[in-house]
């Protein structure tokens, strides 16, 4: 299997996460406390730029079959999984991507208890797979997109997402100033 692409993609991702400071606990938990909107800024920029780059190239035929990598939508599971994830993120102050950035910058807690936690979580999921799979059956719609549902062009949608995220970011930052 070709390893050059995943290693390069990972390198760029890990480098950026660390440079933004997201390998640090405080940057992650302070987003949930709205004391530091760095994570929001990082994610919104990644979504907007990623979408523009992706659609610019896929429109001229550079992307293979999207069904190969498009996520499945299953309302209960996506929401519930996200909620369990959110509790873990606020407790741990990290997530699956930022833990690797943290390990790279020398966080020994991430390398020990953190990695052990992820492996244990994966084992619990694997052992109880039939049960967890049943959670994905409620409201299962498969590989759908907002474009397919609404009939609105993907460029209009990605620009709408970019504009909306700018508004949310402005709003959240204004609220923080009042607080402090």
């Amino acid at each position: 299997m070709n390893f050059i692409i995943p290693v390069s993609v990972g390198f760029l991702f890990g480098f950026s996460l660390q440079k933004a400071g997201l390998g640090h606990y405080d940057k992650v938990v302070n987003q949930f406390r709205f004391r530091d909107n760095l994570m929001m800024q990082f994610m919104f920029s990644a979504i907007s730029v990623g979408g523009i780059v992706y659609f610019a190239f896929s429109d001229i035929g550079f992307a293979g079959a999207q069904t190969l990598y498009l996520h499945n939508t299953y309302i209960l599971g996506n929401l519930l999984g996200g909620a369990v994830f959110g509790v873990g993120m606020a407790v741990a102050g990290t997530c699956p991507g930022t833990i690797l950035a943290g390990i790279g910058q020398g966080n020994l807690d991430y390398l020990s208890a953190g990695v052990l936690g992820f492996l244990t979580g994966g084992l619990i999921y694997g052992i109880n797979f039939p049960f967890f799979l049943s959670l994905t059956q409620t409201g299962f719609y498969g590989k759908i997109t907002w474009e397919g549902i609404s009939g609105i062009n993907h460029w209009a949608l990605i620009l709408l997402i970019a504009a909306l995220s700018a508004v949310v970011y402005k709003f959240a930052s204004a609220k923080r100033r009042i607080k402090s």
Binding site: S48, G50, H71, N78, G82, M89, I99, G121
Partner: peptide
């Protein structure tokens, strides 16, 4: 925290980067 993170991500089908960034810009 990390146990919950992995179980949650596995149920949802991705994490902050896979679903939160790529999933959103692919308009899923």
């Amino acid at each position: 925290g990390c146990v919950l993170l992995q179980i949650g991500a596995s149920i949802a089908g991705g994490c902050t980067s896979g679903l939160g960034i790529t999933g959103v810009f692919l308009l899923s």
